[in-house]
Simulated scan of single mutants.
Amino acid sequence: MTNPQNNTATFLGVPAAKRDSVSCADVVIFGAPDATPHVPGCASHAAGAPSALRERTRQIAEDPSRWDFDQDGPLIPVGLRAVDLGDLPTNPVTPVKNRSLISSTTASILRAGAVPLLLGGDDSAPIPFFAGYEGFGPVTILQIDAHLDWRDERAGLKHTFSSTMRRVSEMPWVERIIQVGQRGVGGSRANDLADARAWGATLFSAASVRKHGVQPIIDEVAPGCRCIVTVDCDGLDPCVIPAVLVPQPGGLDYLDIVELLHGVGQRARIVGFDLVELVPAADLGGLGVLAASRIVCVALGCIADQRSAAKARQAADEGRP
């Protein structure tokens, strides 16, 4: 199916929708090509990612009943009501407007009782995405990323991809931050790391994941909490997703992410998901876009499992078969 707003394929062929018609959806997908460019006025290096992700799923969407071993179920779970709004009309020269649009769209999806799923865009897009949860907290943020993202500002800018988690830490509705995958050299300084730890952020380096697996991360997520999962593609090893701006060796494996998503989905309530920092122009043989699209598919499956279980509990409480 194509989206009439931008004449592109929808993700996994789910129905296209408009922002004012999502009240019957379980999950609402939308793209944000730009938020706050780190080079003012210049399009994001990841602006083409939402379209590339949708296009990558066009062929498999032709038969959504095929078995998906990463989900242990059909490609599109039975009963999942997912829609795709297409890309928001962001513009690299209007960062304030971009942020407002991302936040208001997220909030409108939450008010409709659905789970927002954002396709970025660079790692500045999660800042307004999380801001949209004001009034819908408290939330735990689980971030997969090679970098710390705790810079207060960079070149005078406070909402770019260097400051994602610093800005998140200032949102009162965020009660916990769990960061996974740090490695190599990024833009952080010693004081940024000290501030992250002083705030109470829990850090699991890529080396710790390699040594202990993802179960300690899952155990760190409070049972029953409202959790937003944010995946920066450079959190994975570049042999899995080479399509990133700053590749760093030694990242997480695809199956680490699959196991982590399933574990979190069984322990907490996933109330939001985003995937950012995918750079299609830097891809090799389409491998990065493929892996990233599969991660989004698994996230959809985990959310579908939770929604199905919640509906079953509600039916049981009401005495319905």
Rank of each mutant, 00 (worst) to 15 (best):
A43L: 04
A268R: 11
L245C: 12
A243P: 07
A190Y: 03
A32C: 11
A25I: 06
W199D: 02
F30C: 05
L255V: 13
H38I: 10
A198K: 12
V174H: 03
D123M: 07
E175D: 13
E62A: 03
A206D: 06
V231H: 10
P77M: 02
R267V: 09
T90P: 12
V168R: 04
A316Y: 08
I270P: 04
D87W: 06
G301C: 03
P89K: 11
F273M: 03
R54S: 00
D283H: 12
L110E: 00
A243G: 12
G137V: 02
T202V: 13
Q71Y: 05
I217F: 11
P247M: 13
V289A: 10
R66Q: 10
F129I: 00
I217T: 05
L275Q: 10
L287H: 13
R267T: 12
D20A: 14
D317R: 15
F30N: 06
F136Y: 04
N191P: 01
L101F: 04
N191I: 07
P95T: 07
V27G: 01
R56Y: 01
V296A: 03
E134W: 03
V271Y: 08
A194K: 15
E259T: 13
A82E: 02
S100Q: 15
A125N: 15
D68W: 01
L290G: 01
I29G: 02
D256Y: 07
A291N: 15
F273R: 02
G79L: 07
L80H: 00
P242I: 12
S205M: 09
V78R: 04
L260D: 10
V78I: 04
F130V: 05
R307G: 00
Q182G: 13
N6P: 08
P4R: 12
P242L: 09
G132V: 04
P216G: 10
S100N: 10
T105N: 03
P15H: 02
P4S: 14
R166W: 15
A315F: 08
R81D: 00
G121D: 00
A49I: 06
A292F: 08
S208A: 15
P247I: 14
A35H: 01
G250R: 08
L260P: 09
A281E: 15
N7V: 06
P138A: 02
D192N: 08
P247Y: 11
V289F: 05
D219S: 13
P92S: 14
